[in-house]
Amino acid sequence: MKFILEVKGVKKAYRMGNVSVPALRGVSFSVEEGEFVAILGPSGSGKSTLLHVIGGLDRPDEGTVFIDGEDIFTLSSNQLADVRLHKIGFVFQFFNLLPRLSALKNVELPLTLADVNEKETTEKAKKLLALVGLGERMHHRPSELSGGEQQRVAIARALINDPKIILADEPTGNLDTKTGWEIVELMKNLNAKKEQTFIIVTHDPSIAEEADRIIYVKDGIVEGIKERVNKK
């Protein structure tokens, strides 16, 4: 199996006034293609920063990230945007849908940015919305959808460009337990069906237990990695 993601010695500090606050203090790990990985840690452990770095939203102070064998931090910000557009799909805790666009338009957005023609875009978006169970409500705006439904739209949006990696930042953090589990199930199914790599950041150990592998992060370093025994 080849590594779809390699994180190598990533350090990142934030400046708060005159004080430098280290968020990541040298993080390294690798993820194989098709894996379902959870990054587990308490709040403030640096796991969200790690996800932002992996997704090319934030540049590390030291170290780098390889996606599909490519060192993404040697790229210009335009090329990095292309990596995010084509190789990565984001799912956020607060869904982060564009409020004025319908569910369908939100899902279409990455393909629109990628200049794919309108007809193909719409067809694919409809298919994905059906896949996440929202075929009926695709013309509703985010404000007319429940939290769970909004997260499904966000997942469909993350999937539409057929990215190699889906990065999810506390995807259940803003949902009730039952809905949260439905979302986790959905992601696991997609992982199984489409062989896409999922990396989920969570502080909920029970959700992390669903992953093939758990990477424990605390105080900006990897504390340990736990492989599930019955890994598929």
Binding site: L57, S77, A81, D82, R84, F92, L113
Partner: peptide, 16 residues
């Protein structure tokens, strides 16, 4: 601002 952040996260270039 937040919308712009979302657009950039899903791959919108500065030019876009």
């Amino acid at each position: 601002t937040r919308e712009i952040g979302i657009m950039k996260a899903i791959g919108a270039k500065e030019r876009t």
